[in-house]
Nucleic acid binder design. Structure first.
Lengths: 345, 345
DNA sequence: CTGAAAGCGCTAACAC
DNA sequence: GTGTTAGCGCTTTCAG
């Protein structure tokens, strides 16, 4: 009595055993042949491959990886929204590196929700991804530190993990913001509005800090008057822009601190009509058609962040990473295209 | 002699056995408790959970899925380029559906290369994803049909599989193109240029067919004179636009058949300078800032394609799919924003 | 060069 | 309610 439990036969796929039987060899020889092991006679190998092709055999990666150490052939990427070009470019960069290692990328969008982030990372850990690339939603990265402590390599992208010793790759937000502010100051602006992201994000805080630094250095003590935060989508950026421009003394220039806020601001400016005076504009993050629209931006390469993040994460996974916590800071560059060079009226 | 082979101890993660030992129960009871099985006394369950938390235990998904039928808790998505918003919106839609089923999305970019597509799908099959969502690169979908024959659910998105009985979800390309062409004809244009994608793609062919249909119906026999193809990136679209506009009798209107070609054309138009006569423009695919730029487009919802594709693929995976091959065609709608309503000079 | 046996971590079946 | 046993499909000893 074989007592064969048939929980669900994979899919209709044959197993290595069936290939071995058809080829008239042991299961181990079949394995060796299909894995390109040198210690197999050519004739044998050929026969095994023929049998495999005939049956439509594919190694079961789950079984293989389980036996080889219980880790999946993939890496997890946890981001805010896959459809935001900033994130999808990070994903693209990571994917490139992973492909070179025969690994695949599992992408998850958090919608910037902390609970979702925790659920997704837990799920990825359960799936035993080789490493975790995370754009953390909140400043509470304790759960990431936890996973790391239990052996899961974690690299934070774009935003710094707070209160946790975790590798990170972020932009030089402060200097990028300084460059943007100085650019506008140089054009003669003294009242500059800032349309910012969620205040809890390190990116936002660093960009505001750089902005304030540059304005204070220019003798503008009341720089905070036109600083707004907590706009993470185009609609709210549009609204905030309208509000700023409706002030008694409206800003003559705007610094929008992410790509969605820049788009929202552009939408607000357009709705003013062609006659209205246009404030100067500099945006953080480059975006599609910024060149066509002539928008001056603080540009950087999200792909690099993804690539470097994947490199570092894989090094950690293989135990070849650097000692101590690594914190990379990537440069930005100001690209002048017209909108930031307009003088005040 | 226990002969314990230690190929690589997962990561540093404890196993279910260790949790069971610490809790003083059998491994099966531990399994039941952690899986929320009803047949466990509350006290026992609590003790098991406490032990699990203490050890930082996470079920090994690989082992679980292997035992439960050899399929991974994920679905593969094979697309041209993750960083193209059209594709990333598809991914977003698919992800939403999968999350509802506790599954994750493995995204792979082919760069529109046929060999890469084959390699990636093979790799996903080996990884035993539950289903495959593919935007096929070529018209040779034989390898996809193969996988399907061996039990892997496959759904083609955006482009029709050729010579293979595979489910697909595509846009109503013909009618979208007809709408675009008629819109331009209505504005008075008779010489309309088309900047198209790779000729091998069903999307391209259907869009050209609809375009030709509308122009012929308007009595324009020589409609093919200004039709160009094989432009899949912004740079080549820009070049082709320049060439079209440099003809002795240049088109007075343009139909760009995908988002990248529209952007390329816009770049070309901008470089003409503000004084030059602007051809009218209608683009296939909506895109960010099209509203701000006032570009008339044939719009549709890529997220829907991803969602419906995931729904169908999962239904197939669970054996609850419809009989026969399913071929869904999603509608498009023309959004007039100015660029398509300009009359000829 | 080839094979037999053991077991990765988990769950299904069937006892008790 | 709980435990025992077998085995998912593969690779890794170790023996020939």
């Amino acid at each position: 009595m074989t007592a064969t439990t048939h929980p669900a036969a994979g899919d209709g796929r044959p197993t290595l055993r069936q290939v071995a039987e058809l080829a008239g060899v042991s299961i181990k020889t079949a394995s060796r042949a299909l894995n390109g092991d040198a210690h197999v006679r050519d004739v044998t190998s050929t026969r095994v491959h023929a049998a495999a092709d005939q049956l439509g055999f594919r190694l079961n990666g789950l079984a293989r990886e389980l036996r080889r150490g219980g880790r999946a052939a993939s890496v997890g990427l946890v981001i805010g929204d896959l459809a935001n070009p900033f994130y999808s470019r990070i994903a693209r960069g990571a994917e490139q590196v992973l492909r070179g290692h025969g690994l695949q990328l599992v992408t998850c969008s958090t919608n910037e929700d902390a609970a979702t982030e925790r659920a997704l990372t837990a799920s990825l850990v359960q799936q035993r991804v080789r490493a975790l690339l995370v754009v953390p939603t909140t400043e509470d990265s304790a759960h990431l530190a936890d996973e790391q402590r239990h052996g899961m390599p974690v690299v934070c992208l774009d935003r710094r993990p707070v209160g946790a010793e975790i590798d990170s790759i972020v932009l030089d937000n402060r200097r990028g913001a300084v460059a943007a502010a100085e650019h506008l100051l140089r054009a003669g602006h003294r009242r500059i509005g800032l349309v910012g992201d969620f205040s809890r994000l390190s990116t936002h805080r660093e960009r505001v800090a750089g902005f304030g630094e540059a304005l204070r250095a220019a003798g503008i003590a009341e720089w905070q008057r036109h600083v707004r935060g907590d706009s993470h989508d185009e609609a709210s950026a549009e609204l905030i822009t309208h509000q700023l421009l409706s002030l008694r003394e409206p800003p003559t220039a705007l610094f929008t601190t992410n790509n969605r806020n820049t788009v929202g601001a552009l939408r607000a400016l357009r709705s003013l009509g062609p006659a209205a005076p246009r404030p100067a504009l500099v945006g953080f993050d480059d975006f599609a058609l910024a060149d066509v629209l002539g928008i001056t931006v603080v540009a950087h390469e999200p792909e690099d962040m993804g690539r470097l993040g994947a490199d570092l994460a894989l090094a950690r996974a293989e135990g070849t990473g650097p000692d101590g916590v690594r914190s990379l800071v990537l440069p930005t560059r100001l690209v002048a295209r017209g909108s930031g060079e307009v003088p005040p009226p």
